[in-house]
Design a binder for these strands. Structure first.
Length: 536
RNA sequence: GUGGGAAUAGCUCAACUGGCAGAGCACCGGACUGUGGCUCCGACGGUUGCGGGUUCGAUUCCCGUUUCCCACCCCA
């Protein structure tokens, strides 16, 4: 049996009704705050995420669904061919277009290794080139005495760019003229989050010229993580971004406060009361750099007493030490400097203002000096909403300010912004108890009885549906009893009998399935009658 | 990616030290051919996740594998 792939799942009724409920509420709240919907592609150039989210983040370094297009096996697919003299001919036999000219310039004797790489539109992967260099070095030292040349062959259109990147250590870059019809590969990635895509669209379509600076999105995202409760490989996010030139007010603390107040409103409206808003300021890029230095220094003398995870974090990402849950480490953590002491004047004032405005708006919050965000682009305000009873994945929503992101992605002018993303899967999980409320019921079951009644019933059902009712239609071949059972099972409020007597009288037997009350209702009054009763 | 637990009918779960794979609910049919729910009767439903091993015999024991769950890493 073919099953849904790992980490993905089908959403089935009645749960889908709950998803629609959540999305409908979100749209309504967003509209009240003048946000408009944007839909960006589900995949983007890999480079967008590498630059926007950060090359060193876990997301980009190991959790993305990345694939290449444009590869044609007739061209050069190989990333590497190891060439020694006996194998030289073997490669020629591969008859890849254009190989002849590469080898023409080389004498067999002095070729040690030829590496052929294809360079996609996204540019060469630095990591891949570095890895090849390291391999080459170990091969060369293993083979010691042999004279060698190391040749990197790339499509000629990329030759100059690549040699600029790798022109060192005796590596030769040769351009290979690609044949007619060569389609350079692109590296594409299923979006792991939506902020980068929104900012890309903002820049691409010059949305500032259209006064569009409040945007929201709802849709699937993809991360190749190990599945866990509330954590899927295709997951859904509801998010919004306020972005624009500073003159539009996008940098002002009131935007931060407004956004947080909107989220508070949305969660309450969804019936979630048991949540906590944590906020912090992670400062601007300079503040963060200074703080990171200080943190590393402070950790140096004490890290030896901490758990293995913390020792690793101290090197790779010192901020993460604050996430440590080992009880023995907590006293040490308590002595570490907090970022608030390293905030510049501007960041400090901004954060103070956000807090003052939140109080003004009556939004409850807690400052959590240890709250840090994982993505590179966050600056200043960072926040998250947590909810109990969700296990280890207790954050249902997170976000923050990203003042430098637009420039990083090539915006001609600064466009500070702030946004959030709600984990819809987790939000729905938190709402599961209320699932029944969101399920829409069936208004009426139309039951044809007797010869030729199917046609009449079909028309009548169509009329009622056009009047806005939810209608299910039976079939004359069922016995009436069957249809009653079906109507009851489907949760219909009424059953409507369409038989010869009814057609003659143009008045139909309408039975309330809850009360058992049955009356004859003229055709013209049917929809009205059903709706009335139904709204009681 | 790491560690632990689990997988048996559509669902929830049984099956003792290894001995015919079962129940409740759901679904379908009937009792009842223009009146449901309740009741009763009947039928359907399975490669026990998959693959291998041990054994006369494996749902049960062993190995591998896949998926899910819990946690770690990390984090919208």
């Amino acid at each position: 049996m073919i099953k849904a792939v790992r980490g993905t799942r089908d959403l089935l009724p009645p749960e889908t009704a709950l998803w629609n409920f959540v999305e409908t509420q979100a749209r309504e709240v967003f509209r009240a705050y003048n946000f408009q919907e944007i839909r960006t592609p589900i995949f983007e150039a890999t480079e967008l995420f590498a630059r926007g989210v950060g090359e060193e983040t876990d997301i980009v370094s190991k959790e993305m669904y990345t694939f290449r297009t444009g590869d044609d096996p007739r061209w050069v697919l190989a990333t590497k061919w190891l060439v020694t003299r006996p194998k030289y001919k073997k490669i020629e036999q591969l008859r890849r277009p254009g190989f002849g000219q590469v080898f023409a310039g080389l004498r067999e004797d002095d070729v040690w290794e030829i590496v052929i790489v294809e360079i996609g539109a996204g540019g060469p992967k630095l990591a891949a080139l570095k890895k090849m260099q390291a391999e080459r070095q170990s091969l060369a030292s293993a083979a010691g005495e042999r004279p060698s040349r190391y040749v990197l062959v790339v499509p000629s259109s990329e030759a100059q760019r690549v040699s600029g990147l790798i022109n060192q250590d005796g590596i030769e870059v040769q351009g290979l003229e690609m044949p007619e019809g060569y389609d350079p590969p692109e590296s594409l990635t299923l979006r792991p989050e939506n902020t980068a895509g929104v900012v890309r669209a903002y820049i691409e379509h010059k949305l500032w010229d259209r006064g569009l600076n409040k945007l929201y999105y709802i849709g699937p995202q993809f991360r190749r993580e190990r599945p866990q409760k509330g954590r899927y490989r295709q997951f859904y996010q509801i998010g919004a971004e306020v972005i624009g030139p500073s003159s539009s007010g996008s940098e002002h603390p009131i935007r931060d406060a407004e956004l947080l107040e909107m989220l508070d409103t949305l969660l309450r409206r969804l019936g979630i009361a048991d949540f906590t808003l944590y906020i912090n300021s992670v400062g601007d890029a300079q503040d963060r750099a200074a703080y990171n230095d200080a943190l590393r220094k402070a950790l140096q003398p004490v890290v030896g007493q901490m758990c293995a995870d913390c020792q690793r974090r101290a090197v790779t990402n010192p901020l993460r030490v604050f996430d440590c849950k080992v009880p023995e480490d907590q006293p040490v953590i308590a002595t570490l400097p907090v970022i608030s002491s390293y905030l510049g004047e501007a960041s400090r004032e901004h954060f103070q203002n956000v807090q003052a405005l939140l109080k003004e708006a009556g939004v409850a919050f807690e400052v959590n000096p240890r709250l840090v965000r994982g993505l590179d682009y966050y600056t200043r305000t960072a926040f998250e909403f947590t909810h109990g009873a969700l296990g280890a994945q207790n954050a249902i929503l997170g976000g923050g300010r990203y003042d430098g992101l637009a420039e990083l992605l090539g915006s001609p002018q600064p466009a500070p912004g702030i946004g959030f993303a709600i984990g819809e899967d987790r939000l729905v999980m938190a709402l599961q108890a209320r699932a029944s409320e969101a399920t829409a019921g069936l208004d009426v079951y139309v039951a044809p009885v007797g010869e030729g009644m199917n046609r009449k019933a079909l028309r009548l059902a169509g009329d009622l549906r056009r009047e806005g009712l939810t209608v299910e239609l039976g079939d004359r071949s069922f016995r009436l009893k069957k249809m009653f059972e079906a109507a009851t099972k489907a949760g219909a409020k009424y059953i409507l009998i369409v038989g010869e007597n009814e057609i003659k009288a143009d008045s139909f037997s309408l039975k309330n399935l809850a009360t058992g009350e049955q009356v004859s209702v003229p055709r013209a009054e049917l929809a009205q009658r059903i709706r009335e009763q139904h709204s009681r």
